[in-house]
Design a protein around this nucleic acid. Structure first.
Length: 657
DNA sequence: GTGGATGAG
DNA sequence: CGCTCATCCAC
């Protein structure tokens, strides 16, 4: 027969025969569509991306003409450039003076900022001149993002059909499958009935169309004639319906809020995202299933989500190409052997346009952060504490927007990150539940965390501080736990008592309890400052103190000096004595708290004075016999507890700093 | 649960 | 680039 020769008919299938053939898809696939199943071959995902979002926000807010070049300024840099300005060659990595040269007519709008002591962020005329005293606020954009999101939710059908995932401040993913399913049933009653013989594996009839009107801004075209000339199947119809929905969403955003956006419509999140970037601004791109291979083949795989960083670099290094097309020649076993089974499989699938990740209905944030880079660096806890106040004001105001006051949502943890040289460190603490959350509570915890970081290692000069809250709980907070009725400080003491009681069963302080106890000492110390706050200025110590972090003299030493450190081998602690992990002195257990607090206070004072010989006492001091305790509390950035690699990295950076 | 790293925009 | 947000993983 003709099968021995590659005979290709010039006119393969007549239009009238088209709908007599069967679809590639079955009734089963159709019902999967209703459930937004990630395995459904008919599913349709959209990615919507606001065009130059921050710039649009400012343009709309200020009522600036849409063709006017405009960029959003942050200090001396640009963080968003609208499309008219891009025509002048402006990019994100140039500064404002270069921008003005390239485009003299540009409007540069500085982002809103928080000023110390202010109750709210504001747009300040000369904000760029106050980098040392202001911090950037992106709140205006978060608020607009929220309005856009609610517009999207408003025009789409209600849950559970509606699936909207907030991917970033200016991006969302939509799973349109379930909505498309119901539209298909309305428009094409012939597929709405039960499957023939009630067999879900029965193929669907072909769609009754031979030419679709792809009335969209951009459709990924096909080179491949054998697929291009095929009649449309249900996946094409589904995409087209999806595109209609996306058009209506974009129109609503445009009409109600004046923002333009671009969108991609495809069978999964990965391709939809590539699609939305394909043509911008204010356009949408459909990537039909039959166009996927060709569409993907033209990309560098480093453009694919999750391959833009170290992983992508690694793949390039190992396979000597950054083209999707060339990586397609690498077999699955090859990928697995060089990248590991999981990553290898993932890469294998993703470059073939397969991505079964779900659109998670999630529009609320999971954490919030307030941060500042210091140029120049800051050098005292005094300065740092001032920034903490601003961070707390910023975060708390955002928490109020999240409905903390109405007990809608509430964060469980708070975290302080700190950067010194190349070293990034952070400490976190639970946010006590059971009582109302206010700015002061957060501020006190933040100060405690700062104290921990200072005492824990080299803190100055500090190049960056970030305060964040996370672990949000929904709904009104439940009844307080056992510790709920204890005041702060007392609670820590109770924990310590419990801990020591447990340890004493074994006749010694157990190693794994040490970290908790040391942190406890720090917190007790700082809690005391809290209680003695606001009173008088009386000096309670011979050690120079900071108003926020005061020191307490140890009982054992009237002259303010601890017993001198001893280089000899540490002696075993008995049940009524302890060995100080810093100076290795054996002291009565009763004095342990005070003694540790004294070390802590001293280290902070020393750090304040920039005295390197007193910095990081936990790091350079004696090494407790334990491993976990050492790593947990202090040895993390010296050659004491971590891997060779990390030590070398940290030290080389320090050497340059 | 904690702290560091990575990735995206 | 600076400021966010999210996820993963070793501990």
């Amino acid at each position: 027969m003709s099968s021995s020769q590659p005979f290709i008919p010039s006119s393969p299938i007549s239009p009238s025969a088209g709908h007599l053939r069967k679809s590639k898809y079955t009734f089963k696939h159709l019902s999967q569509l209703a459930l937004s199943s990630p395995a459904c071959p008919l599913r349709v995902i959209a990615h919507i991306d606001l065009d130059a979002f921050y710039a649009q926000c400012e343009g709309v807010r200020l009522g600036i003409a849409e063709d006017q070049p405009l960029a959003v300024q942050q200090w001396q840099g640009l963080i968003a450039i609208n499309y008219p300005a891009r025509k002048f060659g402006l990019s994100r990595f140039i500064d404002i003076s270069e921008a003005k040269k390239l485009c003299p007519s540009i409007i540069l709008q500085h982002v809103a900022t928080w000023r110390e002591g202010d109750a709210k962020w504001a747009y300040h005329e000369d904000a760029f001149a106050h980098i040392a005293t202001h911090k950037v606020s992106l709140d205006p954009y978060r608020l607009e993002s929220r309005r856009i999101l609610s517009t999207i939710k408003d025009v789409l059908p209600a849950a559970p059909v509606q699936r909207v995932e907030k991917a970033s401040v200016d991006e969302v993913f939509l799973d349109l499958s379930a909505q498309i399913h119901s539209i298909l049933l309305e428009r094409y009653p012939e597929i709405s009935g039960p499957a023939p013989y009630d067999d879900p594996t029965e193929s669907l009839p072909r769609p009754p169309t031979t030419a679709l009107d792809w009335n969209t801004d951009a459709l990924v075209d096909l080179d491949n004639h054998e697929t291009e000339d095929d009649d449309p199947d249900w996946d094409d119809i589904a995409m087209l319906v999806g595109s209609e929905i996306v058009s209506s969403v974009r129109a609503a955003i445009r009409e109600r809020l004046k923002y333009t956006c671009s969108a991609g419509i495809a069978r999964n999140k990965m391709i939809a995202k590539l699609g939305s970037a394909h043509k911008k601004p204010n356009q949408q791109t459909i990537v039909r299933n039959r166009a996927v291979q060709q569409f993907m083949g033209g990309f560098k795989f480093t453009k694919i989500r999750n391959l833009g960083g170290k992983l992508g670099e690694d793949v390039v290094a190992k396979f000597g190409t950054e083209e999707v097309k060339e990586l397609l020649d690498v077999s699955l076993p090859q990928l697995k052997s060089k990248l590991g089974d999981d990553t290898g499989s993932w890469v294998y699938e993703i470059i073939r346009g397969e991505d079964s990740s779900e659109v998670n209905s999630r529009t609320q944030i999971k954490s919030m952060l307030s941060a500042k880079s210091f140029r120049p660096t800051i050098n005292s806890s005094d300065q740092a504490v001032k920034w903490l106040r601003i961070f707390v004001a910023d975060i708390f105001s955002r928490l109020v927007e999240e409905g903390v006051l109405e007990h809608k949502r509430r964060p469980k943890t708070i975290n302080l990150h700190h950067r010194q040289g190349g070293q990034m460190r952070s400490r976190q603490a639970p946010i006590p539940s059971g009582r109302a959350l206010d700015e002061n509570v957060l501020f006190e915890i933040a100060k405690n965390l700062l104290g921990q970081i200072i005492v824990d290692g080299r803190a100055w000069p500090c190049a960056n501080l970030q305060l964040s809250v996370g672990g949000f709980e929904e709904g009104p907070t439940g009844n307080r736990g056992i510790g709920g009725f204890l005041v702060r400080g007392e609670e820590a003491k109770a924990m310590k008592r419990e801990s020591e009681a447990h340890a004493s069963e074994h006749g010694e302080l157990r190693a794994e309890k040490r970290p908790k106890n040391e942190h406890g000492a720090i917190q007790r110390f700082l809690s005391r400052q809290e209680t003695s706050h606001g009173d008088s200025d009386e000096d309670i110590s011979s050690i120079p103190t900071h108003p926020d972090i005061r020191s307490v003299p140890p009982d054992v030493s009237r002259d303010g000096q601890q017993p001198k450190c001893d280089d000899g081998p540490p002696q075993p602690a008995s049940s009524d004595t302890f060995t100080c992990s810093v100076c290795q002195t054996i002291l009565p257990l009763m004095q342990r708290e005070e003694h540790e607090d004294w070390h802590f206070a001293k280290s902070i004072v020393a750090a304040e004075k920039g005295d390197p010989s007193h910095q990081a006492w936990t790091a350079h001091g004696a090494r407790p016999k334990t491993t976990t305790a050492t790593r947990r509390l202090g040895a993390s950035n010296v050659n004491g507890g971590h891997s060779q690699k990390k030590v070398a990295k940290g030290q080389s950076r320090l050497a340059f700093g």
